[in-house]
Structures are given as structure tokens and as C-alpha cells.
Design a protein around this nucleic acid. Structure first.
Lengths: 215, 215, 215, 215
DNA sequence: TATGAATGAGAATTCATTCAT
DNA sequence: GATGAATGAATTCTCATTCAT
């Protein structure tokens, strides 16, 4: 179910060899993710990270050369992984059902990884100054691929005509709302978080799927 | 077209009386809005604001007692004004056309005040630690009022059954995407910003309005 | 009864002519005395003084060229006046009764002008960096005169042999304790301030007068 | 003769373990004591302390979290130690001789630790805003204990009737005069400091002991 | 006279980073 | 590897004083 885990994640990395190293690095990344995603890059200090990771500040910098590198690592590796394994959309399946599945998986993944998701959103909101090109490329490629599939469905008359990329953007926007802007949601909707989440999912499906179903 | 301006804005304020005061205060708010909306609260320094406003740092603090107050002023006054004058929805009009008008006005207002809009989004993403209760109340009241109108349309069979609050959230989410997450949009869609914006608006209307139109 | 008042005080001054001026200057000195005596020179700001005096900071500096001058004025004029009119000791009176009278008047004057007294004590504790020579001279002359009288009483066998200057110092020390170090007194003795004050006076008289009475 | 030293002092402390730490902390406390006792809390800057201690300002703050903490540490630990080991008064000894011994020890201790003594006096003069409760309690307990002993002597007719607490206050007052108000003393008495000090001690003994000796 | 406006020189404190062990 | 120690460069904020009106 989990499309990736922290071990797989850091294994991409070149440095860490021993188990201890991997564990320490993991603890740092975990703490940093907590804090960066909550308070942003400037709002987080190495002291906080070191404290949360249960080690000394210099030790944090032993594993990651600088605060910026640590942030970048998180952003460009962990966040990238949010996309990569995510989207399996079957070009031969039923279009509406495939889209429904996509929306649901997107919501689920964001709910499962709220910190990664918020970190990414926060970076985007700032204008993405630290997002590396490879991740940008990855994203673009992913979108392009999906858009092509959707375009096929439109061309064959299974979906109402719409710009596929904008459709994907709309899906991202609405799912983001329920997973990253929870503070806003809580200010608007009443009820337990999970209920609101379900209500949101229902609404998104209604709008998008009914909006796309050809008349 | 502009539903408010900075003069009207600050006139609500108690303090500034002289012309000079209003001008200087305006310059500071302007600079602060630029910087806070771009780099967030912690990512912005008083030095930057003073430089951008063309005055000395203590002079900035002569007008606003602290960095936090300045931020708060911006967030809670300027941003609040984004909502208040915004939404006129006619309960007696044609539901679909009223919603279309609402979506368009929402998009326009966000495009006209991108910095206020981004500042607000950024605050929300952080969990809204500095958003004051009066603004929260304003928002909630606005949503409640709109939701009631929409519920009326649903009850009379003019719209497909949907949770009105979630509908509004969906509209906010999608408009936000095109006005605040431009960095992400640019990474996905090709073409001039304004074209992309138009495409987005078109897509949102299609999804939401067709999604709501009863079959 | 009052050995001096603020009018007499400031009249020594050269500048102020009009009534308003004298009043304003008085208000400033009053506020400054409150604050300096409570918080010391560095612990007091011109803002605080201006606020307490009910005027603007530049206006304070219109009357007194600098914070230091204001403090100095207070210290060297008001405090000096504490001494000058104070001590009438009759060389022909009964020695014990004259000393008793002196102790009582000293206590009373310190109690009547606690702020001046505390300001002076605080300056002394710091090493008296701003006490001007004329006040030093005044004090010395006063002590010398008293010491001579007392020496006469000792020489004529009316008092036990003792160094007259040290006697005066002892009187100052003990009276100061009850008027300036009230925080310490309150930490030690129980009962209402005035009772404690009376007890202190009684004790001082007992010690000094009995200690001096020849056996 | 020295009833305590700085090593014993800081060893009560929880934090410092290594030799370097103790040395540095000691250097800071030493410098701070010099400066705070001379210029008071507000009149002293961290820059001055850092300079005097031969280290950088942040390094000072590495050992003490804030200026206030540093001051408080000094006041409440070092000064408290001034009292604790001080007063051994034998209830079974000769009352006059015991009091004489007490006065002398009190004078000596204040002369040996003039900075601690002045710091304490300065804090008291300000109204003791930073004196912690435990020190207050210590003082009160000490006074109570001594007062009881003295009362016993009075009850058995060995001393003239007097309020024991006020007697102690008088002793504190006069000893303080010679150790903390040296600036005033120098303005009054002529001769070398040590001679003046001896003269003062002689006078205090004469007054208090003769004043108390029953006739 | 009086004051709003402005500021340079500090003040305390923070923080990413380096260094020595 | 790990950490205590140290610091330069900010960063927010204060304050006495000046200036213009």
C-alpha cells in the first residue's frame, strides 16, 4: 500500500552505509520534515531539528552539509517520491472509473503523507525557489503522460471536451485543499476531520465526474 | 472595478491622521505586502522592508510597533477586505449564472490582489497562527450566507444535490490554484499566463457548472 | 515645616520665566524624580518621563538639554536642598536632647522626601559619578560644623568620647536604613510600615543616646 | 577566614561539569559581578561583560541564557552565600562579646566581598525586584534565629531592653555604610580607607555595645 | 513652544556554521 | 562519529537626540 518508505528513499543517497548512519539520517529527515512542513524553511532552526532528532546540532550538520541541503534533500527526494509511484491510470479502463480511482488515490496519498504534501505546497507557494529541475521534469512528464491518456478518452467521446492539463490541475487543487489547507477547512466546515474529508471527496467526485460525463 | 483601495482601507484605521503619515504607512504596508507574501513571515526581515519602503528600520518601527504587528495588520485588515466587498450573489437570479458570476469575480479579485491572496494562503498553510478571530468570524459568516442561498437552489431542484459548503470550498480551491500556485501552473501548462488563466477559468466553469446542472 | 519647595528650588535656575514654563519644568522634575529614584539613571527612559509628565519627549528636552542634565539637576539641586536647611543644632542646648532632636529631624526629612533621599543613596552607591563638587563641599562643610559642636560636648565631658564624624555617619546610616531600604525592612520586620518606623526610631535613640551618655 | 569561595559556590550548581566550563563561567560571573555591582542591572551591558570576561558576547550567552539570568544567578547564589555561612553566635557566650564578634565578622565579610555586598544593597534599594523567594526566606530565618538568641539575653538581664530585630537592622545599616557607601564616607572622613574603616568599627562598637550594656 | 517625524548608535538575542577534541 | 565550545553575521527592538515645522 505504501508506495515508498524512508529506507527506499535514502537508499538513493550515496553516503550512508552503516545501519546507524541510516537510522540517524532517517531521524534527522523525520524531524526536519515535521518542522519544515509546519513552519517553513526560515521558520525552522537547526536547533529545533537537532532537538527533535535527539542529537546535537553539529551532528545534524555532519549528515547534511547545511540547512539548505537538508531542506532540499527533503523537498526533492521525499516529495518527488510522492509523485513517482503514484499514478497508475489504465488507458484501457473505463474513463470515469479511472478518474475516480485517480482522485481517490491522490486524496489518500496526500492524507497518508501530509507533511510531504504540505512541504511541497509551501514550496510552490513561495515560487519554488529550491525545487530542482529533475523534479520539475518528472512532474511535467507525469502530467504530459496523463494528459495524453485523458485526451484519448475525450477524442473517443468518452469524456466531455476539456483541457486535460487543466483537469489535472483542478484535481490537484481540490485534493490539496482538503489535505494542506486543513486550517481553512476547519474554519468553514463543522464536524470531525474524517467526515469532512469524506464529504470533500464526495463533492469532488460529483463535480468532476458529473462535469465530465458527456450529455 | 476595484472593490477597495488602500486609502479606504487605512481609513478604517484609528491612528493615521496627517497626509505624510498615511503615505509612509502606505509605503511600509506596500513593501511589507510584497515581501511577506513572497517570503513569508520568518523569511522577511525588517531590513528588507525598510529598504523597499525607502526608509530606515527604526522609522518602520515608528509606524508599526513590531514586525508581528505589521504582519498582523496586513493579514487581518488588508486580507479581510478581500472578502467583505467581494461576494454579491443574487438568490433570485438564475443559479447557474449566479455561480458563474461568483467564480469569475472570485478569480478576478484574486488576480487583482495576488499578494493579499498569497499572504492569506500562506497563513492558512501554516495553520493560521496569526489570523484574528474577527476575520475568522467574517469568513464563516460569508460562507454560511452563501451556503444557504445555494441550498435554496438545490432544494428547488435547480441544482444537483451537493453539500453547499464543499462546493464553495471547491471553488476557493480551484481559483486559488490559478492565482497563488502560479509557480506550479507554469511548470505544467505552456503558454502565456493570461491564456493559461483563461483556460483555467473555462475548465473550472465546465466542471463545476456542468457538474451541478441537473440531468 | 517644609524646609523647601519646588518653587524655591527652581527659582535658583536661570531659564524659566513664565508661570507655564515653571509648571512644565516642575512636572518634568516631578516625573523624573519618581522614575530616577525608583529605577536609577540607566533604568529610566525619557519616554517614561515624558509620559509621566504628560508631554512629548522633545518637549522634555526643550526644558533640559539632555537626560544627564535632567538627572544632574535633580540630584544636585533637589537633593542638596535636603541638607542645607536641615540641621539646626544648638551648641548651647543639652547635648543628648540636641542629638535626639537631630536624629528625629533627620528621620522626618527622609520620610517626607523619600524619592530625593533614595536618589541620593542610589547615586552614592554607584560611587557618586554625577554628584557635583558644590554639593560635596556643602556636605563636607555641614559635617565639619556639626562635628565641631559635638566635639565641644565631648571635650566638656557631656558625651562619651567618640569620633564625631563617625557618629554622624552612624546616624545617617541608621536613618537611611528605615527610609531607603524599606524593601529590606519589610522582609525582616512584621507590622505596619509606620509602626516599624517608630520602632526603628526608638531603637536608634536607645543605642546612640545611651551609647553616648557618659557612665 | 574566607567562609566560601567561588568553587564551592558554583559546585552547588547543576550545570557545569568540565574544567573549561567552570573556568569560563567563573570568568563571566566575575566580570558581571564587577560591572553589575558598580553600574547596576540597566547600567551594565553584555558587551561590557563579554569584554571584561575576555570572550564574545554570544559566548557569554552560551553559558547564561540571558542577561537577566546572569544577574539573577549572581544575586541569588553568590549573595545568598554571603549570609549562610556567616553568623555563628553562641547563645551561651558572653552577650556583649558575642555581639562584638558578630559586628566584626559582619564588617569583615562585607569588606571581603564588597561587590556581592554592593550588588545586594543596590537590589534592595531598587525594591528587590529580582530577589528570589528562597533568599528572602533564608534571610528571614536567619534574622529570626538571631533575634531569639538576643531576646534570651535581654530576658536574662544581660542586655538592656531593645527590639532584637531592630538591633540587627541597626548593625546591618552601620556595617553597610562602611562597605557599600564608601563614596559617601570618603567625602566626609579624611584619612586612608583602612583607618576610616577601623574608626568606623570602633564607633559602631562603642555605640551599640555601650548602648546595650545595662546600667 | 511644542511635537510629529526620523535616525544612528547601540542593546539583547538568535542562528547557521566552524573548530577542536 | 559525536559533541561541547565558540562566533560572525544578522535580527528585532530601544533610546537619546535631532530636525522641521
Amino acid at each position: 500500500m505504501r508506495p515508498f518508505d524512508s529506507d527506499a528513499d535514502t537508499s538513493v543517497h550515496t553516503k550512508p552505509r552503516t545501519r546507524i548512519q541510516r537510522e540517524k539520517e532517517g531521524a534527522i529527515l523525520e524531524a526536519a520534515l515535521d518542522l519544515f512542513s509546519e513552519n517553513g524553511f526560515s521558520g525552522t532552526t537547526l536547533d529545533q531539528i537537532a532537538l527533535a532528532a535527539g542529537m546535537s546540532k553539529p551532528n545534524v550538520l555532519y549528515y547534511f552539509p547545511s540547512k539548505e541541503e537538508l531542506y532540499s534533500e527533503l523537498l526533492n527526494r521525499r516529495v518527488a517520491n510522492c509523485f513517482a509511484p503514484l499514478e497508475s491510470m489504465n488507458p484501457n479502463g473505463d474513463p470515469i472509473e479511472e478518474l475516480r480511482g485517480y482522485i481517490r488515490r491522490k486524496m489518500e496519498i496526500s492524507r497518508a503523507y501530509p507533511r510531504e504534501s504540505r512541504l511541497y505546497a509551501s514550496e510552490m507557494l513561495r515560487g519554488a525557489p529550491m525545487l530542482c529541475d529533475s523534479v520539475r521534469g518528472l512532474m511535467r512528464a507525469l502530467i504530459d503522460a496523463k494528459a495524453e491518456i485523458i485526451q484519448g478518452w475525450i477524442d473517443s467521446g468518452h469524456l466531455a471536451p476539456i483541457d486535460p492539463k487543466h483537469l489535472i490541475i483542478a484535481i490537484w487543487a481540490t485534493t490539496r485543499q482538503y489535505t494542506n489547507f486543513t486550517a481553512e477547512i476547519r474554519g468553514i466546515a463543522t464536524g470531525a476531520d474524517s467526515e469532512v474529508f469524506e464529504g470533500g471527496m464526495q463533492t469532488i467526485e460529483t463535480l468532476i465526474l458529473d462535469g465530465l460525463r458527456p450529455r
